[in-house]
Simulated assay, not measured.
Amino acid sequence: MLKIINGGIETLVEDWPGRLGYLGKGMSASGSFDNVGLGLANVLVGNPSGEAGLEITGGFFEAEFTDDHVIAITGTDMQPTINGQPVPMYTSLKVSAGDKIKFLHIGTTGFRSYLAVAGGVDVPAYLGSKSTCIFGAYGGFDGRPLTPGDEVKFGAPSADLGSLEGRKLKPEAMPELVNQWVLRAIPGPNTCPDYATEEGMDLLFSRVSKIQHTSNRSAYRLEELPMSFFARTDGGVGGSHPSNIIDHAYAIRGALNICGNTPILLVADGPTLGGYMCALNVINADLWKVGQGAPGRDFMKFQLCTQEEAVQARKDQKKWLSEDSLA
């Protein structure tokens, strides 16, 4: 068990791929914002693919273990320590009852760390997932971020702790954290020539845009687009602004919603439908990069991608997040 001393900026229980099959009922998938970080952490501690772990956003998380466990920390390096001593990232290590783990804050790259424990987080699955949806207040640990005094339980590990300790990744399996994220994307469903101009879409796929500070697990906002992006002067029956259309389903996770002149990337806890156009979709294999983008600091650039390339990238990622990546 883990006793929470400080929940930090935001620490959530998340799994992958989250709560699928309920978009039609207005429930987003939620799930790990960086599924690569969580996936590699699970590989290191011998958990099944997609098992729930702790997603630590921003830093300042602190807790005490009450039993012996094997853990792994991935994602951005928040200078984690156990009993005041630095611990390595992307390595499975044993902790003992009474050990205190502490995270500082994000460094120059990345925004989220992941803590996996052999056996996974033991919380009830809600509609098939242990993930937290903080905007709906369901799933995970009582549907909310962890706070001081919470006690997080863990399941049974897949093997003897001694055999799980000391696992590391191959150097080529280490994810690269940067400040300018290239996101492969497929245009549509609301694109040129009906909703955007060809020049507007060219701009969308060529410019580098800063992540706005008004971003969270529901949406990442980017810099505004000029009116020349739009192919229409108004939204017709949808509304006065050309970004308006009649309500339709959003293809989350990864849809780029155009709300007024603001591109908004709908992500983990994003809305499932609305009345704005969606100009492109970030491919599934690149969604993890969004979760490591720091609002107010990092930048994003979209790169044109085909459906065939997107399918192959997803297959490649599945292999990446397996024991093939262990040294």
Rank of each mutant, 00 (worst) to 15 (best):
L2K: 08
I4E: 09
G7K: 08
G7A: 07
L12N: 00
V13Y: 00
E14C: 06
L23G: 03
G31K: 07
S32E: 02
V43A: 07
V43C: 08
L44Q: 05
G46A: 00
N47W: 04
L54K: 05
L54V: 02
T57G: 07
G59H: 11
F61V: 03
F65H: 10
F65Q: 11
T66D: 14
D67N: 15
H69A: 12
V70M: 02
I73R: 00
G75H: 04
D77C: 01
G84C: 11
T91C: 15
S92E: 09
S92P: 06
K94E: 13
K94L: 14
V95A: 10
I101V: 13
K102Y: 09
T109M: 13
L115G: 03
A118W: 06
A118K: 07
G120Q: 02
D122E: 14
V123D: 07
P124C: 10
A125M: 12
Y126P: 01
Y126W: 13
L127T: 01
L127N: 05
S129Q: 02
S129C: 01
T132K: 04
C133H: 13
I134T: 11
G136Y: 08
Y138P: 06
G139F: 06
D142M: 13
P148E: 03
E151S: 10
G155W: 10
A159G: 05
A159Q: 12
L161M: 03
G166Y: 02
E172F: 11
L177T: 06
W181H: 15
R184H: 12
I186Q: 00
T191R: 10
D194C: 12
G200L: 09
L203Q: 11
S206T: 15
R207I: 00
V208P: 04
Q212Y: 00
H213K: 14
T214M: 15
P226Q: 05
M227S: 11
F230L: 04
F230Q: 09
D234A: 03
G235M: 08
G239Y: 06
G239Q: 00
S240V: 12
H248N: 12
A249N: 07
N257W: 03
N257I: 00
C259A: 15
N261V: 04
V267W: 12
T272W: 06
Y276T: 06
V282S: 06
V282Q: 06
A285D: 01
D286R: 06
L287H: 02
L287Q: 01
G293E: 07
A294T: 12
G296N: 09
F299E: 12
C305D: 07
C305R: 04
Q307M: 14
E308G: 05
E309I: 08
V311K: 15
Q312H: 07
R314A: 13
R314P: 05
K318P: 08
K318E: 13
S322H: 07
E323Y: 11
E323D: 14
E323R: 13
L326P: 09
L326A: 06
